[in-house]
Nucleic acid binder design. Structure first.
Lengths: 222, 222
DNA sequence: AACAGCTTTCGTACACTGTACGAAAAAGCT
DNA sequence: AGCTTTTTCGTACAGTGTACGAAAGCTGTT
C-alpha cells in the first residue's frame, strides 16, 4: 500500500509526469532560463540527481514541456465545419503560446515531436481532409496556418508582457533615438497606432487569421 | 602607426565589430549552444575577459547577433511597387533565417531592437505607406507578413538540415509509431507529399506568401 | 628620459550549470 | 530471513558567465 506508487501518507510520490508538471510551473513562473535541474528538484522537494531516474537528461525535460504545451491547445474535430474548427484551434494556440512564451524559442531546437504533439497534428490534418482539402492542399494550408500562428506568437513574445499601457514603455527608449528624425515611419506607426491607449497588439491576430481563412479554399485548383 | 588601431604588422586588432562577426561565424558553424565566451575568445585568438572591454555581457553579444542577421535581409525600396518589394524582402528574410536558424530562437527573448533592425523596419514601413496603405493597414500588413515569415522559418528550423532526402530521416522513426495505425492522416501526408523524392518544404513558402500578398490591399476599407 | 594618464588586456576566483558514477536505501518477492 | 529490483541521492568534474583588480601597452608632457 505504501509502496512506490500511491502516496498513502504524506509522501509526495515522484513520477515523470510530476517532474514535467513542476518544470512547466517553474518555467511559467520564473522563465525558462531559471529552470535548472537543481531549482526544479528543490521546487519538487527532492534532490537533483533523483530526477534522472525519470528523465534521461535536461533535453528530455524540454521535449516534455513542449509536448505539454501542445496538449493544451484545443483539438479540432473532423466532420465539423473546417473553417470554424481552424479558427478555434488558431485562437487557442495563440492563447496557449502567450501563457508559455518560452515554448516558442524551444520549438526551434526540438528534434522529435511528442505523442500529444502528434495527436494534435493528426486531428488537425483530419479536419482539413474531411473539409474537402486534397493531401497537397492540406499540407499547404497547414503550413500557412501554423506559420502564421507561431510567427505571431513569436512577435508577441518579444513585447513587454501585456496589459494596459506597456506599449509606451517599449516605445519610450526607442523614441529617443527618433528625436533625430531618422525613423519617421516608425514614429508615425508608434504614435498613431501602437501607443494609442486602447491598442492591443493581440487583437491584430484575428485580422490576419481571417484573411488567411478567407483565402484558403478546398477543392478544384490549389 | 602600430598603435591600438590599425594593425600594421600581424596584429589582428580587436574591436566590437570583430567580436560580433566572429560570434556569428561560430554560431553558424557550431550552433548557438557552442557559443561560449571562452570558445569565442579562443576562436578570435584572445582571452575570455578581453571581450568584456567591447561588450557588457553575453546578452549584448546575442543582441548584436540578431542585429547582424537583420542587416543581411535585403531592404525594400519605397516608391517601387510595394508587392514586388515585399516579395523580395520576404524571400530574402527566409533565406537569411535559414542560414542562421538559431536567430529565430533568439528573437523570442530579445528586448531592444538594434539599429540595423530599426533601419530595416523603417524601410519596410516606408514602402508600404508609399504603396498606399494607411497607417493602420500598414501595421496589420506588416504584422501579418512578418508573422508568416518568422513562423515559416521557425518550422523550417525544426527540420533536419535540408538537402535531398533528409525528410525520410525525420519521418522514419516516427513511422514506427504509425505502424499501430494511430495516425492515418500523418502517414498519408508523410508518404504522399513529404517523403516524395523531389519534395522540398522550402518551396511551400512561396505559396503562402503569394496568397497573403494577393489578399493584402491598400486604400478603401481595412 | 622620466613621468603621468589613458586605453586595452587578461589572471584569478566564485557561484552556478548538467550529469557520470556508484553507493545507499527502500520495496517487493520467495 | 535473504535476494532482487526499484528508487533515491552524495560526491565530483568539467564547463558556464563574469566581478574584481592587476598588469601591460600606448600617448603626450615635461
Amino acid at each position: 500500500m505504501t509502496g512506490a506508487s500511491e502516496g498513502a501518507a504524506g509522501r509526495p510520490e515522484l513520477s515523470r509526469g510530476k517532474v514535467l508538471q513542476k518544470a512547466l510551473e517553474l518555467a511559467d513562473a520564473r522563465g525558462i532560463a531559471a529552470l535548472s535541474i537543481r531549482s526544479l528538484a528543490q521546487s519538487i522537494g527532492t534532490k537533483p540527481m533523483s530526477l534522472y531516474y525519470y528523465v534521461a537528461n535536461k533535453e528530455e525535460i524540454l521535449d516534455g514541456l513542449v509536448d505539454l504545451v501542445f496538449a493544451e491547445i484545443s483539438t479540432p474535430q473532423a466532420g465539423r465545419e473546417w473553417k470554424e474548427q481552424m479558427r478555434r484551434r488558431a485562437h487557442s494556440a495563440r492563447e496557449v503560446l502567450r501563457r508559455h512564451p518560452w515554448a516558442i524559442g524551444l520549438l526551434e531546437s526540438r528534434k522529435v515531436p511528442g505523442p500529444e504533439t502528434l495527436k494534435h497534428h493528426e486531428a488537425t490534418l483530419a479536419t482539413l481532409r474531411a473539409g474537402g482539402f486534397t493531401v497537397e492542399q492540406t499540407a499547404r494550408a497547414y503550413s500557412l496556418l501554423d506559420s502564421y500562428i507561431y510567427g505571431f506568437a513569436l512577435q508577441e513574445a518579444g513585447l513587454p508582457v501585456s496589459g494596459g499601457e506597456p506599449m509606451a514603455q517599449v516605445a519610450a527608449p526607442i523614441m529617443e533615438r527618433f528625436a533625430t528624425g531618422e525613423y519617421p515611419y516608425l514614429v508615425e506607426i508608434a504614435t498613431q497606432v501602437v501607443m494609442q491607449p486602447d491598442y492591443d497588439y493581440g487583437n491584430e491576430f484575428g485580422y490576419g487569421l481571417e484573411l488567411i481563412l478567407e483565402a484558403l479554399k478546398p477543392a478544384s485548383a490549389g
